[in-house]
Write a protein that binds this DNA or RNA. Structure first.
Lengths: 121, 121
DNA sequence: CATTCATATGAATAATTGTTCATATATTTA
DNA sequence: TAAATATATGAACAATTATTCATATGAATG
């Protein structure tokens, strides 16, 4: 019953210098942060949500107005607003039967603009 | 056989002023741009790819080194590098058997940092 | 030119996700 | 309190996607 080394599937040697490896491990944000970061960008990774963010950049708006502007169902928009809300990208206030949504902070626009700059190269 | 209006599932009236509606339609980037933008952020929306971008921020690196640093299979990393390459977020150069990857431009870091700032609120 | 090493890639699978449909909740008004 | 309106939400389904596994490609080397 000879024990076999698990196949580590590594290259023969690393090209990186020791100090770069250390540097990477130091500078790398924590696992949880990286996960949250990916979660945040995932929210931007849907064109419906991008559109919602763009229209909200123009003005505070209720769910129904957004749905009409984007020509989508109330339900679809509501579901997506929930995602945006959870990511704290939008905030809302209630006024009677109507709920008005607006952008949560300035980062939203910066992120969108950086993205635009990138794809416009 | 009375014809029924299709249920448009709209609100009774829009809250928005005409000029806001116009404004939205003017300012809104084209459908294709919005789609590309979502595609770009989708690429950031995965923690493996986020990690790859972070390590590449420290230094140019070959596929195998990245795999070892992140403790993932060569194949998984290679697949993800392809996604990053297609989004023009990384570039590469070949040196013999080895392929070295590096960040394509400065936007990558700006976008990541804006994301970080947002989640650290 | 056969072998080895580094990387790429196609197929398969499991997991995630966006929309729809039906319905629930909340608020106002008759 | 019943009806109407605006919004939210759960379930279902189709579509997308990240990883694994097996294998292919490409480059150096004996």
């Amino acid at each position: 019953m000879s024990e076999k080394e698990p196949v580590l599937e590594q290259c023969d040697y690393m090209h990186l210098h020791e100090n770069v490896i250390e540097q990477v491990q130091e500078e790398m944000p924590e696992e949880e942060i990286l996960y949250d970061l990916a979660e945040l960008f995932k929210v931007f990774g849907d064109s419906t949500r991008i559109k919602i963010l763009y229209v909200l950049f123009q003005s505070e708006m209720c769910v129904c107005d957004i749905a009409q502007l984007l020509n989508m169902s109330q339900s679809a928009i509501s579901h997506q607003l929930r995602v945006l809300k959870q990511a704290q990208l939008v905030k809302y206030r209630r006024e009677g039967k109507t709920v008005f949504y607006s952008l949560a902070d300035a980062h939203v626009n910066t992120i969108l603009n950086q993205g635009l700059e990138h794809i416009e190269e």
